[in-house]
Simulated assay, not measured.
Amino acid sequence: MTAHVIADDAEALAVAAGLAEAFRTDAPVRDAERRLPYAELEQLSASGLLGVTVPADHGGADVRQETLAEVFRLLASADASLAQIPQNHFVYVNVLRRQGTTEQRKFFFGEVLEGRRFGNAQSEAGTRHVQDIRTRLLPLPDGSHELTGVKHYSTGALFADWIPVLARAEDGNLYVAYVPRDADGLTVVDDWDGMGQRTTASGTVRLDAVTVPADRVVPHHLTFQGPQLHGAVAQLLHAAIDAGIAGGALAEAAEFVRTKSRPWFESGVDTAAEDPLLIQRFGELDLQVRASEALLGVAARAVDTARDELTDASAAEASLAVAAAKAHTTATAVLVADALFEVSGTRAALDSLNLHRYWRDARTHTLHDPARWKIQHLGRHVLNGTRPPRHGLL
């Protein structure tokens, strides 16, 4: 594959806006028929968007996180499933940036600039909690490793060229192994049956004694031994997806009311769009969407500031800003996707229109990690000055 190389932030945003418009057209049908977006992902790869966070000294645009968040918001406003598929791609590009060796960065950043996609094999089911990782990376006599385990919610893996796998070594520390999609012993099972995010193919990855060369393994545990932005970057993109769902649902509702809704007979107006009660409700919803987008921007700029000068204080501020954005966008996405039906009326509930995809996507995606814990960390900080913990979900 030959991918375009995007030059700067402005071009990244223009490309994302163009792709969002293209992806929007068939989004309802893809969701309704669970038509997996292979062609659309090839477009995404060819566009160069997957390489925009590659550092400049490796040939990338190294865009600001504020730009990356807006890219995800734009894509999610059109198709939340398509937007979520590359979320882990950028997370694991970031892992290489932080912990990869010179040779690892040179190789994998080259792959990314050529349009190669990273998936993920991170979460596991049936464990005590999300950080109870039981997949094992064991040493072999020749210096390579053997990888064994089962992963769930593996968004992007089915479409990936490389699958980063989170595993524990004999010493109990966390590592990321970058495994080719076609590696012997690796199987991706398309068994995702969530009510929302239907075309993410977030199924199962099985690893049966997969051999991994030593130069494909990164010491992820070192990420959390000092100030870090791993969790903030990952959560920022999730918040952007939720903000995009909310914005997309609001735009869909407005278009529906303008073109398809009838006014309530008591309103005394000729069109639904002139109904003062509907105007009031749309104003309230727009206020929430604007607030979410504003918090998303504040959070992204906090991450950029921390990247420029990473300290315990700047990392903590970035994590808290992202936590605030994520808590707000979580609520807004569900609120607006639900209100779409309230303002549009009975016809909006027709299954053939598939307007419920916004609610299904919002309700499913916002389950990724609980917003109540974001608020808990905000409260601890404002009351007691307690900095947030260093982990990958904050």
Results as ranks from 00 to 15, higher is better:
Ala167Met: 10
Arg168Lys: 15
Arg168Phe: 09
Glu170Tyr: 08
Glu170His: 12
Asp171Ala: 09
Gly172Pro: 13
Gly172Leu: 13
Gly172Cys: 13
Asn173Leu: 15
Leu174Gln: 15
Leu174Asp: 15
Tyr175Cys: 09
Tyr175Glu: 10
Val176Arg: 07
Val176Gln: 08
Ala177Glu: 04
Ala177Val: 01
Ala177Leu: 01
Tyr178Gly: 10
Tyr178Cys: 09
Tyr178Asp: 10
Val179Asn: 10
Val179Gln: 10
Val179Ser: 11
Pro180Gly: 09
Pro180Cys: 09
Arg181Ala: 03
Asp182Arg: 06
Asp182Phe: 01
Asp182Lys: 03
Asp182Leu: 01
Ala183Met: 06
Ala183Leu: 04
Ala183Asn: 06
Leu186Arg: 04
Leu186Val: 09
Leu186Cys: 09
Thr187Ile: 06
Thr187Lys: 08
Thr187Val: 11
Thr187Pro: 03
Val188Trp: 03
Val189Cys: 02
Val189Ala: 02
Asp190Leu: 12
Asp190Pro: 08
Asp191Gly: 04
Asp191Gln: 06
Asp191Lys: 04
Trp192Val: 03
Asp193Val: 13
Asp193Asn: 13
Asp193Ile: 11
Asp193Lys: 15
Gly194Ile: 10
Gly194His: 06
Gly194Ala: 12
Gly196Ser: 00
Gln197Ile: 14
Gln197Asn: 13
Arg198Asp: 03
Arg198His: 05
Arg198Trp: 05
Arg198Glu: 04
Arg198Gly: 05
Thr199Trp: 00
Thr199His: 01
Thr200Gly: 02
Thr200Leu: 03
Ala201Asp: 01
Ala201Met: 01
Ala201Glu: 00
Ala201Gly: 01
Ser202Gln: 02
Ser202Cys: 00
Gly203Met: 08
Thr204Cys: 04
Val205Gln: 02
Val205Ile: 00
Arg206Tyr: 08
Leu207His: 04
Asp208Cys: 04
Asp208Phe: 00
Ala209Ser: 14
Thr211His: 05
Thr211Ala: 05
Val212Trp: 09
Val212Phe: 08
Pro213Ile: 02
Ala214Met: 07
Ala214Phe: 06
Ala214Pro: 06
Asp215Trp: 02
Asp215Phe: 03
Arg216Lys: 10
Arg216Phe: 07
Arg216His: 13
Arg216Gly: 02
Val217Pro: 11
Pro219Trp: 09
Pro219Thr: 11
His220Met: 14
His220Glu: 11
His221Asn: 12
Leu222Gly: 05
Thr223Tyr: 04
Phe224Ile: 11
Gln225Trp: 10
Gln225Cys: 09
Gln225Asp: 14
Gly226Lys: 00
Gly226Cys: 00
Gly226Pro: 05
Pro227Met: 00
Pro227Ala: 12
Pro227Asp: 03
Gln228Trp: 07
Gln228Leu: 06
Leu229Met: 08
His230Trp: 08
Gly231His: 07
Ala232Val: 14
Ala232Asp: 13
Ala232Phe: 14
Val233Leu: 12
Ala234Lys: 00
Ala234His: 08
Ala234Pro: 02
Ala234Val: 01
Gln235Gly: 14
Gln235His: 12
Gln235Thr: 14
Leu236Ser: 07
